[in-house]
Amino acid sequence: MSARDWQGLSISAVLLALAACLPLLGDDYYLTIGVTIAMYTVLATSWALFSGPTHYISLATAAFFGLGTYCTALGIENGLSYWMTLPIAAVLGALVAGLVGIATLRLSGVYFVIFTLGLSELVRQIVTWAQNVSGQKGLYVLTEITEAHIYWQLLGLGALVYLAGWAIGRSRLGFALRIIGDDEEVARHSGINTARAKVLLFMVSGATASVVGGMLAPRYIYIEPSTAFTPMLSFLVVIMALLGGVGRLWGPIVGVIPFTLLWEAISASFPNQTTLLLGFSFLVIVYLLPRGFVGLLEGLRRRVLQREAYA
């Protein structure tokens, strides 16, 4: 590892430590927003791990999230400890992602997008059907887990995702994915097993979203399909990741933070026009920031460097 890598790692560690202090401030309102930011950061970053290099837009986040939520809820109801349910959620998420990946990652473009959107609906219908057959109703997750615990867990998971992303970025797998993203034909001709590479990354992304769902279950307490599998979640994750920029590992978080704060400001000040203003902000984002904040920052940096070069 180069000195630059160490520098990056230590900066990240310091930032993480700072973020971990948030619950100690004692302000529950900031903590609640912190949980939202942490949740979307993990989801958007893990989404970008897969979709960033491959350009496959996945709308399946809600499917995996809901899967994890149900995994934790059912596990606790059947006497498992909470900590046991998280790895189970991860394995289950990875398995489903693997199966789905094998079946669909040969699809490309819009077909893949539609399939992933359908997937969360499919999983939701299966869960509902299972409930109907078993007579099982909404699930209750009554635990002693507080928001601060959830926040710290999400931070820990976020750190893992960053490490994984960093490791993948410099592995053969990461290199293969970048080639696939540039031109899948070329990748195949160079002897890259494109399907395997894509499926592997999709599994990482699915497992992460599933664990996030599991971690959030104690927060929602009452779990039902309509809240666990809300399609809105998938869209928000994509929008936040795109707002940040998916070309860099730290891109999504630069999108998540301003977006969550903007959302909060809109919900607090205009409770009757949330959806309208939200749609309006999407338009602004798409028109003014097509490459996300990462693109904006890098453009600025380039301009500054150029000016220095002239001077």
Binding site: D28, T32, T36, L216, T227, E264, S267, P271, N272
Partner: peptide, 22 residues
Amino acid sequence: IEYDDQTNPGETIKAVQRLATQ
């Protein structure tokens, strides 16, 4: 003081928290 929770439990939690603290 009214807030829309968008039928989303996460938003309900945030809104009640906001009412209590802000």
